[in-house]
Simulated assay, not measured.
Amino acid sequence: MFDSLNVCCVTDKQADITPQNVLTEAEDDSTCRLIEEQETQTASIPSTEGGSLVYPSRRASTGISGYPILTDYGKARFADPINTDPAMPDIYRAPEIVLRLPWGYAVDMWSIGIMTLELLEGKKVLYPIDEEDRYNPVLALSQYIGLLGHPPPEMVKQSKYSSLFDEAGFWRATNYPIPETSFSDFVTTIPPGEEKELFLKFIRKLLTWDQELRATANQLAGDEWLMMRYDDVNG
């Protein structure tokens, strides 16, 4: 998505393409003025989390418009040399990063797919956090298989987690059962019909095991579902 900058928008602690790093322009400054008035009358009381002061947010009272803008490039990575280290936040990690394979621009498109589902449904797509409140890559892989099916055998063979699969590439870590789920079941805000089918087709272009098969931003520009939503807005 950012080929012209030759940089991948991922970080070791927080990916750039997540809801908190996508901004849109407010239609006017009424929200800012209202917040100023509210703070003057009743100042926000911060809490302490992780040694830092965290102030509560106030709900916006105005509409938003314009194109989305990506922010927070503080730890963006250069595409060359090839990256192989862990990156991205736990619930957004692309499969190639979990499997500890070389990765590049395609991780951003994975993030867009996960983010789109989360914004649409208001819940997490993946949550590979174990009972000890720690990220668990094995749990993550079982959840990915539940949504995507088994990974390509060639990916498994190159991965540090190849022992979790049998010779045919099937999951054998029975202590981490594969959840029975699907994109179709996850999406409930779009009723069954043409739009849902187009949306699921759109998501499956983004959320793939093989980063080489993952759609690029240019390839998605004229996607049928995106064009349907564009026509509705500009109708």
Rank of each mutant, 00 (worst) to 15 (best):
E118D: 08
P153Y: 02
P19F: 02
A79F: 13
Y67H: 10
A215N: 03
M1G: 10
L220Y: 06
V22H: 05
C9R: 04
A168H: 10
T174N: 12
Y144T: 03
P81C: 01
Y230G: 00
R134K: 13
Y127H: 11
E25I: 15
F199H: 05
P95C: 08
G149D: 07
R93W: 03
D210E: 07
M109C: 11
Q158Y: 00
Y176V: 03
N6T: 01
S47V: 15
V22L: 13
A43K: 15
A215P: 01
D185E: 11
L206W: 02
T62R: 10
P137L: 03
S44L: 11
L226D: 05
A173M: 05
P68K: 03
Y176G: 10
M155T: 02
T208M: 10
L200M: 03
R93N: 06
S184I: 09
T42Q: 15
S159W: 02
Q158N: 05
Q219S: 02
T208N: 01
L101W: 05
C9T: 13
L101K: 06
T188W: 01
T84C: 08
D72M: 09
E180A: 07
A106R: 07
Y92E: 08
I203P: 00
D28N: 15
G50A: 09
E39Q: 15
D223I: 05
E131D: 10
I45R: 14
I203G: 01
Y67V: 01
T48M: 06
G122I: 01
P46T: 04
V98A: 07
H150F: 07
A168D: 09
M1S: 13
E121R: 01
E27N: 12
P102H: 14
Y144S: 00
Y135G: 14
V107F: 07
L126F: 14
E167Y: 04
R100N: 02
E96Q: 12
L147H: 12
